[in-house]
Nucleic acid binder design. Structure first.
Lengths: 228, 228
DNA sequence: TTTATTTTTTGAACGCTGTTATTTTTTTGG
DNA sequence: CCAAAAAAATAACAGCGTTCAAAAAATAAA
């Protein structure tokens, strides 16, 4: 409050220190991200990270509150990718094109970020609270959030009278569509890989089949005129 | 091999010891199940179990190879419930009734067994191998397995010429239907609960809405005559 | 009943984890 | 150069799954 040195313009060295902090933060996140992407949450170990960045394990706590905070930072940053990826669908003209484009982008991101997807979309019960707290800190504008985006598209479709009779609850419709895609992605990234003892329950070579079939079913199930 | 005492009929005391083994095995599983059902996999602790059954932690290894083996035993036993629950749908007459009944039973089981469902249906990568090995040991008859059961129902529908043109791949159709239900269940059990910081992404009070909508969409999307 | 054998149970330890309090080192500003 | 502040390291704690040798208990044989 009454510290005149720290009120406004940062000194050059303050600037540099801040930059160095940011750099090390970045290095920590990159190392952790590698572990996380390849082998999942519990494969990320503070001691392994420390070794990789050549610091002591305790040093990491200068940059992240705890392990959860670190992984959360990674996830949230990478989630920006997804969001920016998804909103691209708004370039499409019609609600139909938009929703299909969005579905495709959503599914593609999930398949290329399986561990991200799991942690984001299938959160642990114990995990949920801290995660939601972090989300709330800088909650993305709702219209950019995946579900909300889909909902606005559905609302548009309803407004244009494109949907069959009885489909007027945009939130419910969006949630149902989301559920379909969510299931597709999860079955693929969790059941699509064969194991030494079982053939995979799902043949991942035919994923596009399933995706197209799901889209097709939704079109024929929801749209008044599904042939456009 | 050449031990005449151990070749056939067990002695009375052998019988009793075997029964006592089974009883303790059961107690361990029940204690662990409680922890697991309430708080998930990592809340199950061998040391906590040991305290609850009033044995040392090491004693558990007489009854289960390791922690994974224990949880797997619980899951597999409880999975019998699901399977027996699902096959009930075969009492229905038509493939349509059967599949809807099965869908309902599948979803209901998932909602009432959230932690089971997660571990079974969203297995960890590291977990997958051991799990598949265990599954392979006494693999359920395929026609009783959830996906296979659904597939046979779809095949029946195809045989009866109930599906629209282009829907001839029973495996793909079953997998797509499964994905839809899978997504419904998972969104519900992972996103349906509000947190102190966010309103839930999904309003769980309207789950039946989403379920019925999904069924309805599938019917209109797949069936030649969706009004029967 | 006493003895030998086998089974069950335990206590203590190992290596791992996330985390923290304390101490040391480094960096900063005067 | 020196005091103040920040950063990093050391060492430890409590917890985890797991293992192994020793103790205890139950069984079978004499």
């Amino acid at each position: 409050m009454d510290n005149p040195t720290n009120q406004n313009t940062p000194t050059p060295s303050e600037l540099r220190r801040e930059r160095e902090r940011a750099e090390l933060t970045e290095r920590i996140m990159n190392v952790a991200r590698d572990m996380f992407v390849n082998d999942g949450y519990e494969a990320v170990t503070l001691r392994k990270i420390a070794k990789a960045i050549e610091y002591s394990p305790a040093a990491i706590y200068q940059y992240f509150k705890d392990k959860q905070d670190l992984i959360l930072a990674i996830i949230r940053r990478d989630y920006q990718d997804l969001r920016e990826h998804l909103v691209e669908c708004l370039k499409m003209e019609s609600p139909l094109e938009r929703s299909i484009e969005m579905a495709y982008r959503y599914v593609a991101w999930g398949r290329t970020h399986p561990n991200h997807y799991r942690l984001l979309m299938v959160p642990h019960p114990a995990w949920t609270d801290a995660q939601s707290r972090a989300w709330a800190q800088d909650a993305p504008p709702l219209e950019r959030d995946a579900l909300a985006l889909l909902k606005t598209i559905v609302e548009d479709a309803i407004r244009r009278d494109m949907l069959k009779e009885g489909y007027s609850d945009a939130a419910a419709i969006a949630a149902t569509l989301w559920a379909g895609l969510h299931g597709l992605v999860l079955l693929e990234i969790t059941m699509g890989t064969p194991t030494p003892y079982t053939t995979p329950a799902i043949d991942s070579s035919t994923f596009d089949n399933r995706f197209n079939m799901m889209i097709h079913i939704f079109k024929e199930g929801l749209l008044k005129n599904s042939d456009q």
